[in-house]
């Protein structure tokens, strides 16, 4: 028996322009760093050193008299280098008003629980540097969702829409576990769905969408993107892809999108949402086009 090891299979870097990995946000940031854009950033930070940050936070609580009418509270928070919007509201809660309520968990843009409406834009609190914002920083709950208390909104409708697209892998011929077989995806196909798989369910896109605001049944960008992840996965059969497209092309599906690009603008994970929605529109048309 030969002990010689087999040469490890090497993979060529994908050349397909469809693969979004080519110019990833990380590459962009690295390029910025080299070109000195980051120095400007630290300058802005240094300017704020030793100062306090003025934040205005939306307050509402149906159970407390005097807070039933929504209002804004002002807080002056001591600035620290690298301070995020989430850090600022956490400081305000811990030091000034323990009743200030908002969701947060991971503090590193992974859990998706702290999307707020900051200075007129949907952003993740933990991913937004205070030094990048004009003061006073106005922090509100996500628009177009019912406010439960302070910065906490009711996300159940958003979750309903996410579940409506059957966001789970469906395949009839799953390999037998006993054979220890794997269901492999080609690197190219993985690249294709890579960006769509980054969603953290923060709801920023849905909140930014003017169409979703006017049509409660519209699936919304996040759910359509979730459907894209599965519809574009080669491992699912053609029938299942058709089934997915049938969900997407119904009245309140992809055709509601009017390409306003608001969702793409706000997505903290840089998912090209509009691009995915448009591609699904074309897939839906292709499926229905018959030449005979």
């Amino acid at each position: 028996m030969s002990t010689q090891q087999q040469e490890p299979e090497t993979q060529e870097a994908p050349k397909d322009p469809d693969m979004k990995g080519a110019q990833s946000p990380q590459d962009r940031r690295l390029a910025e760093k080299e070109s000195g854009a980051i120095d400007e950033e630290s300058e802005k930070q240094a300017e704020l050193e030793g100062e306090t940050v003025h934040i205005k936070v939306f307050r509402y609580d149906p159970e407390v008299e005097g807070k039933q009418e929504p209002r804004f509270d002002d807080f002056h928070v001591p600035f620290e280098k690298g301070m995020t919007v989430l850090d600022a509201v956490m400081y305000a809660r811990d030091e000034y008003d323990s009743s200030l309520t908002f969701r947060h968990s991971c503090r590193q843009a992974v859990c998706g629980s702290d999307a707020f409406f900051v200075n007129g834009k949907q952003r993740l609190g933990c991913k937004t540097q205070i030094s990048d914002l004009e003061q006073p920083v106005r922090i509100e709950p996500l628009p177009h969702q019912e406010v439960v208390k302070d910065l906490v909104v009711d996300m159940s409708h958003f979750y309903d829409q996410m579940h409506a697209v059957e966001p789970y892998f469906q395949d009839e011929d799953t390999p037998d576990v006993n054979d220890l077989e794997e269901q492999r995806q080609s690197p190219e196909n993985r690249e294709k769905i890579k960006m769509s798989s980054r969603c953290i369910w923060c709801g920023a896109c849905m909140s930014s969408c003017n169409i979703a605001a006017g049509d409660n049944k519209y699936l919304g960008p996040a759910a359509i993107n979730k459907a894209y992840k599965f519809a574009m996965d080669d491992r699912e059969s053609e029938e299942i892809k058709e089934h997915r497209l049938r969900i997407l092309e119904q009245e309140h599906g992809v055709w509601r999108c009017q390409t306003q690009f608001s969702c793409t603008e706000v997505c903290p994970k840089d998912i090209p949402l509009t691009e995915h929605i448009q591609e699904l529109k074309r897939e839906a048309v292709k499926k229905n086009l018959k030449f005979w």
Partner: peptide, 23 residues
Amino acid sequence: MSQSYNRGLIEDFGRWKEFKAGM
């Protein structure tokens, strides 16, 4: 959840200054 607050559509066109190119 006993009660919640609906801010209506105030965010839509009242905030035109915050619109981006696509909008």
